[in-house]
Design a protein around this nucleic acid. Structure first.
Length: 231
DNA sequence: GAATGTGTATTCAAGCACTA
DNA sequence: TAGTGCTTGAATACACATTC
């Protein structure tokens, strides 16, 4: 359970780091959403991508691209000000209680979070979309299946695969195996673990300030993922 | 270059857990 | 109890690597 809590924090970091979307994308995304809702109510069904594109005055490919970009992005309001007092602007992060952990535990925590952040970031594209979409954005398998153009069962399988990859990727950071991997699969796994390691130095990993495990609702949503990865 | 082996991606069907 | 969401195993097709 202890490891699970720490991994949960790392996942939050990872998702947060993935929130790259510029304001222009957000604006267009809102417009897209609005147009889709309007079309849906007037047509009495979900509008096709072509209809949506026509309504927006853009190309079909552009709509597809936008949907994908928006889907990938995640916004977490950790910096959201939670007080009305101008002199005391407290953010969600500020409101989090000090857990009183020892310094060595804190350093270990930061390293683990960093590893997991990179592990999520280096997942194959579709697996990453599923992890973020399912565990963080609360999308159903059906939604994800529609989005990726596969069946729900395939989503389930890829979700399981993604969790296994995350677990192996993290474990590899602590195994220090010198053995040359044999076989294609093992080499790919080793390469995945290596990419996680190479993304940041030890100093960077333990030096970054880990964001607290804030937002109870959000934490509850990803608890299932944490339990699976951390067990 | 062809044959073979291995891994990956996918669908389908059956079944489980939960909820209204 | 029916509906929903999800998981799992079997089967298939395809891609890529290895061997001869």
């Amino acid at each position: 359970r202890f490891a699970a809590q720490r991994i949960r924090g790392a996942i939050i970091d990872a998702v947060r780091a993935a929130d790259w979307a510029p304001r222009s994308v957000r604006t267009l995304a809102r417009r897209l959403d609005s147009v889709e809702q309007r079309l849906a109510s007037s047509l009495g069904r979900i509008p096709s991508i072509g209809e949506t594109a026509q309504e927006l005055g853009v190309g079909v490919e552009e709509v597809r691209s936008l949907r994908e970009r928006v889907f990938r992005s995640v916004v977490l309001a950790f910096e959201h000000v939670v007080t009305e007092d101008v002199d005391e602007e407290l953010t969600l992060i500020d409101m989090l209680a000090d857990d009183g952990r020892e310094p060595d535990a804190e350093l270990e925590d930061r390293e683990l979070k960093s590893y997991l952040r990179e592990a999520v970031a280096h997942l194959p594209e579709r697996h990453r979309l599923i992890v973020v979409g399912y565990f963080i954005q609360e999308r159903t398998s059906e939604e994800l299946a529609r989005f990726l153009g596969v069946t729900e069962s395939r989503i389930s399988q890829m979700r399981t695969e993604a969790l296994a990859m995350l677990r192996r990727g993290i474990e590899a950071q602590y195994s220090h195996s010198q053995a040359e991997p044999e076989g294609l699969v093992e080499r790919r796994r080793a390469d995945y673990a290596r990419r996680i390691t190479e993304t940041s130095s030890v100093t960077e990993r333990i030096g970054e300030r880990g964001d607290p495990d804030s937002d109870d609702r959000f934490c509850e949503e990803i608890d299932r993922l944490v339990d699976l990865v951390g067990s």
